[in-house]
Computed example of a mutant assay.
Amino acid sequence: MSRLGQYFIFLGSLFRNREKMRVYLGLILNECTSIGVGSVFIVALVNSFIGAVTCVQTAYNLTNPFVPHNIIALIVRDSTILELAPTLTCIVLAGKVGSNIASELGTMRITEQIDALEVMGINSSSYLVLPKVIASILMIPLLVIMAGFLSILGGYIAGVLAGVISPEEYVSGLRLEYKPFGVTFALIKTVVFAFLVSTISAFQGYNVQGGALEVGAASTAAVTNSCIAIVAADFILTQVLLT
C-alpha cells in the first residue's frame, strides 16, 4: 500500500475506539501549552522582522513619485494577511512543532511505549495523536492572528523609523480598500495547515521502525512533507476561495 493510503488509514484510526472526552481534556491542555505558549517567541520574532522587511523593501521599490506612500501599508497589510502570516508561520511551526511531534512519537515507538498502550486495550493512535491535532487546530490560528498583528506593527515601526512613510500615511494605507474576507481566508488556510502539520508529523513518528537513526529521519521527513503539503494546500485553497 502506498504511503498516502497508509496516511488516510492512520487518520481513520484516530476516531475509532476513542476514550471518553474527559480523558482527552488534560492531554489537550498540555498540548496547547506546548504548541501554543512554547511557540510564541519564535512566531513573534520572525513575523515582526518579516513585516519590517516587507515595508522597507516595498518602499525601496516604489520609485514612482506619483504613487502615494500609503500604498506601502496596503501592500504590507495584504501580503501579511493573505500569505505571510498564515503560510510562513505554519512553515516555521512545521519545523518546531512538527519535528517535536514526530520525534516524541518515534521515541515512544522504538521504546515500545506505544506497544504497551495497545496491550492495555487503548487505541494508541487516538490517545496520543488526537490531542495533538485538536491542540494544533486550536492554538495555531491564535498564533497566526498574533503574527499578523505583529507583522503589520513591525512594518509600521520600521517604516516610520526609516522615514519611508509617515504614521498617518501608514494608517491610511491600512484602511484603503480593505476586504474583511481576507482575514477569513487566512484563518481557513491556517486550520487546514494546522491539521496537515500535526497529522503528517504524527504519522511519520508513529510509524517509525528501527532505532534512533530512524527517529531522526522521521523527524526530517515530517518537516519536509509538512512544508510540501502546506504550499500545495495554499495553492489549492487560493484557487478555490479567491477565484
Results as ranks from 00 to 15, higher is better:
Gly148Asn: 13
Ala73Trp: 08
Ala73Phe: 03
Ala73Cys: 06
Val53Gln: 00
Ser172Gln: 13
Ala202Arg: 10
Ile50Gln: 01
Val191Glu: 09
Ser103Ile: 13
Ile152Thr: 02
Thr63Pro: 02
Val160Asn: 13
Asn64Arg: 09
Phe8Met: 09
Ala59Trp: 00
Phe185His: 12
Ile101Met: 09
Lys132Trp: 03
Asp78His: 07
Pro131His: 01
Gly216Val: 11
Thr87Ala: 02
Gly121Ala: 04
Val144Asn: 01
Ala221Glu: 14
Ile81Asn: 03
Ser48His: 03
Thr89Arg: 02
Ile42Cys: 01
Cys90Asp: 07
Gln209Pro: 00
Phe41Asp: 01
Lys20Asp: 14
Tyr127Gly: 04
Pro167Ser: 12
Val119Ile: 15
Ile157Pro: 00
Arg3Asn: 14
Ile140Met: 05
Glu83Trp: 09
Gly163Ala: 09
Glu118Pro: 04
Gly12Ala: 04
Leu174Gln: 02
Tyr156Thr: 10
Lys96His: 13
Ala212Glu: 10
Leu45Cys: 10
Arg109Pro: 07
Met1Asn: 11
Phe235His: 08
Met146Ser: 10
Ser99Gln: 08
Leu128Pro: 04
Leu117Tyr: 10
Val46Arg: 05
Phe49Gly: 02
Lys132Met: 05
Gly163Asp: 06
Ile140Tyr: 02
Gly182Gln: 14
Glu83Lys: 06
Leu62Pro: 05
Thr89Gly: 00
